[in-house]
């Protein structure tokens, strides 16, 4: 159940390129399932098959990495939560990138996976540092909105609402939303279309 997401420390894995869509993260044929179990092995399935052994998710030096470092508009396209689920089941616990597509960002948040952004120069430096030393430990310090590696520290950004939900441990929203049941009923009763469409 929900818990605070504060500091994540682990090795990084760089994935270069803009506009990497969720069809690439998890191709549609793997969505034929009624649970999310087993998706981890299929993450980036087609990209990995294209260049056997060369994709970062296949390279031995990145096995066990937990922080994915990406470029712009990562996770665009389909709303499939299977994408962050596949990344999480592979072992990813946080993403740092230039920017993220909105639905993907929300899906990660609902799983307690922070997606934080930093300027392109910081991302490139981070991707280079990880590529040069895959053993490098990265620390994503959410309360202080920082990423630290080696001697370096850089500021990261995350929208305030998402940040609060992560650091306060309310990213699994169901319980909190349900607490306002009386107000939910009130809003429903105030909307004319709810009345128009009743009993049909």
């Amino acid at each position: 159940m929900p818990s605070e997401v504060l500091t994540i420390t682990g090795r990084g894995i760089p994935l270069l390129g803009n506009d990497i869509d969720t069809d690439r993260i998890i191709p549609a044929r793997f969505l034929k399932c009624v649970t999310f179990d087993g998706l981890g092995q299929h993450v980036f399935a087609d990209d990995r098959a294209q260049d056997p052994g060369q994709h970062p998710f296949d390279q031995p030096q990145y096995q066990g990495s937990q922080i994915l470092v990406v470029n712009a508009n990562f996770g665009c396209g389909s709303s499939r939560e299977h994408a962050p689920q596949a990344l999480a089941k592979w072992g990813i616990r946080a993403l740092i990138g230039e920017s993220f597509a909105e639905i993907f960002f929300g899906n990660c948040l609902a799983l307690g996976i922070p997606c934080v952004t930093a300027p392109p120069a910081v991302i490139q430096a981070l991707q280079k540092a990880v590529a040069e030393d895959p053993q490098l430990q990265l620390t994503l310090d959410l309360p202080n909105k920082q990423v630290r590696w080696g001697e370096n520290t850089a500021a990261v950004e995350i929208p305030q609402g998402a940040w609060q939900m992560l650091v306060q441990g309310t990213w699994d929203a169901t319980g909190q939303l349900l607490a306002a049941k009386a107000q939910i009923q009130q809003v429903a009763a105030s909307l004319p279309y709810v009345r128009w469409q009743q009993a049909r």
Binding site: R80, I103, G106, N107, A110, M165, L177
Partner: peptide, 15 residues
């Protein structure tokens, strides 16, 4: 996403 589908089913609302 699917976790939000859960939230709408359970609460008819989203954050």
């Amino acid at each position: 996403g699917t976790s939000q589908v859960r939230d709408v089913l359970a609460t008819q609302t989203l954050a």
